[in-house]
Computed example of a mutant assay.
Amino acid sequence: MPRPTLPQICTGTFTVVVSAVALLAVSGSTGVFEVAVLVAFAVALGTLATALLMTLSAQRRTDRGVPAGAEPAREAATVPGPRPEYAGRS
């Protein structure tokens, strides 16, 4: 399973914070158990939001023809060695 990206993590965190504040404000709960249940529900919503974003992102990659687990090749990931423009110079 691929790891979530930074925007996906930020969206999940934002979902947790907003839903926790909204649930606590609307419910008016003051007991420790009630607040813990509402915060746990907010964390579950944030986890669900991140999982859905990861699923949508994987579907977009496979629709474009990129395998789900494949990362795009990066220029910096090449093996270090002599560059062709410097070969032969002393």
Rank of each mutant, 00 (worst) to 15 (best):
R3W: 12
P7R: 01
P7Q: 08
I9K: 10
C10V: 10
G12A: 00
G12V: 04
T13P: 00
F14R: 04
F14W: 08
S19M: 07
A20Q: 00
A25N: 13
V26L: 15
G28L: 11
S29P: 01
S29M: 11
G31H: 13
F33N: 13
V35W: 01
V35F: 02
V37S: 00
L38E: 05
V39D: 04
A42Q: 03
V43I: 13
A44E: 05
A44Y: 06
L45A: 09
L45F: 02
L45N: 00
G46Q: 01
A49K: 05
A51G: 06
L52R: 07
L53E: 14
L53N: 10
L53S: 08
L56H: 06
S57H: 06
S57Q: 12
Q59M: 14
Q59A: 11
Q59C: 12
R60V: 13
T62S: 06
T62G: 01
D63S: 12
R64Y: 07
R64S: 10
G65V: 04
A70M: 12
A70V: 15
A70H: 09
E71G: 08
R74M: 10
R74W: 09
A77M: 08
V79D: 04
P80L: 09
G81Q: 01
G81T: 03
P82F: 00
P82H: 10
R83T: 08
E85V: 06
E85C: 02
Y86C: 01
G88C: 04
R89H: 08
S90C: 09
